[in-house]
């Protein structure tokens, strides 16, 4: 487990992005995955994440994906994803349903042992993976990347979660 790095204190930023929930219809998973691969929206396997220039695609449920991209006009991202993936996919705009928070700083793994029940050892959980779990009693999506962790928090819990994170980051500085 990496020790907290005094040079880069733990901090977090709210990022305004669009979130789309994609589900392959019964029996259409292969169609959807092929369509994504062909159109520059590769869809990862369960428990994994793919980072590309335009989107982050993560899967924390079988046959389902979270597509996270830059904020656009309402429902525009969803419409674009739907166009790419075709009729085999049910595409639902969740841009307002989640707040995305980017937690950066070397100490994030150690800090999150308060409240997160997953094994955060870098040998176990690292960039390229994704997990749905509970942090501080809130169901969240965790997507680690080389310099930190992207967290998707249900929007109505987001303020509570941010207050909890602020408390946590403050503690890790002291």
């Amino acid at each position: 487990m990496s020790a907290p790095d005094p040079v880069s204190p733990l901090r977090f930023e709210r990022t305004t992005g669009d979130v789309v929930e994609v589900t392959a219809r019964r029996g259409r998973t292969r169609d959807v995955v092929y369509a994504g691969r062909a159109r520059d929206l590769p869809l990862p396997a369960m428990g994994e994440a793919i980072w590309s220039d335009t989107f982050v695609a993560a899967s924390t449920r079988p046959d389902r994906w979270w597509i996270i991209g830059p904020a656009r006009a309402p429902a525009e991202t969803a419409a674009r994803v739907s166009g790419l993936l075709g009729t085999g996919a049910i595409v639902v705009d969740q841009s307002s349903g989640f707040e995305t928070v980017d937690l950066v700083g070397a100490g994030w793994r150690e800090a999150l042992t308060q409240g997160c029940r997953l094994d955060l050892d870098p040998a176990i959980f690292t960039a390229g993976q994704a997990a749905a779990t509970t942090i501080a009693q809130i169901n969240v999506i965790m997507i680690p990347h080389p310099s930190g962790l992207l967290v998707l928090i249900p929007a109505t819990y987001a303020q509570h979660f941010r207050e909890w994170l602020t408390h946590l980051c403050g503690e890790s500085h002291s």
């Binding site: 369960m46 428990g47 924390t60 449920r61 029940r117 997990a131 749905a132 779990t133 509970t134």
Partner: peptide, 10 residues
Amino acid sequence: PHCGVRDETE
């Protein structure tokens, strides 16, 4: 079978 070993609380 999808997520690996998790605590009962999940």
